[in-house]
Design a protein around this nucleic acid. Structure first.
Lengths: 126, 126
DNA sequence: TTTTACCTTTACGTTAACGTAAAGCTGCTG
DNA sequence: CAGCAGCTTTACGTTAACGTAAAGGTAAAA
């Protein structure tokens, strides 16, 4: 019934090191509860960590991941800040769109590479 | 009629520094001709550099980019190497597929963030 | 001819994102 | 109660990907 995690449980679940998790906290990306000294991770922390790892897989820096996390909870912001959020969101959209194009292009290049490889295999002695 | 580029022309064209270009060469990703000391870049070098930058945009390391470049010309390979190439290509395909999923998920999260931001803006005084 | 605009190499500096001890507390278990 | 398993902090080490001088070669323009 405990929906919470210790640091090593979280690490095992998401396949990262405890060192990395602590580092993300040090950088302000995570802020787990504490029971004495020990860190207690909630399901929300799990989601946040997943977001971090997803960001990393597509090449985001931790600073960028942090921004994304902050964008996700705009509750404590004045008008000016909220408008800044909106334009950051628009920026990210453009970046993601570009990345989609880049990935599609890469896939085409893999197609070409595979064809050439198959052709070379057909020529090669076995 | 000169389809070639100096290093600074190439740098301007693709919006990178000459230092970066030289670094990529140092790492074995580029191998331009020389006229005396000077580097002369061909259209093919341009394409290679574009591939590098595309890779970087989606979070590839230079080592991974180098692998992609090598995959692109499998001519000088024996059977064993070609088969290794094929499996590397398959790996990359999987990675790209995962990245596509990650980007789509990110886009959904931006949707949510935008909605919340708009809601907060509606509440905020102006 | 000296300045300007390129180019070169060599080398040390920097940042991000952790890895890797080291040293110590806590709580069970044999 | 000794020992292990898991948690903590502190701190130094490491790698990638360049940035940033420094010192110098070449060639055209002023």
């Amino acid at each position: 019934m405990s929906v919470n995690y210790s640091i090593s449980e979280l690490a095992r679940e998401l396949d990262v090191t405890t060192r990395a998790i602590r580092f993300y906290e040090e950088q302000g990306l995570l802020a787990p509860e504490r029971r004495g000294q020990e860190r207690i991770y909630s399901p929300k922390d799990l989601v946040t960590l997943k977001l971090i790892l997803r960001g990393k897989r597509i090449g985001f820096s931790l600073a960028e991941c942090k921004e994304l996390i902050e964008l996700y909870d705009p509750s404590g912001g004045n008008r000016k800040q909220l408008e800044a959020f909106m334009s950051k969101i628009a920026e990210r959209r453009l970046q993601l769109a570009q990345q989609l194009l880049d990935i599609e292009q890469m896939q085409l290049e893999l197609d070409t590479a595979e064809e050439r490889c198959l052709a070379a295999l057909a020529e090669a002695p076995h």
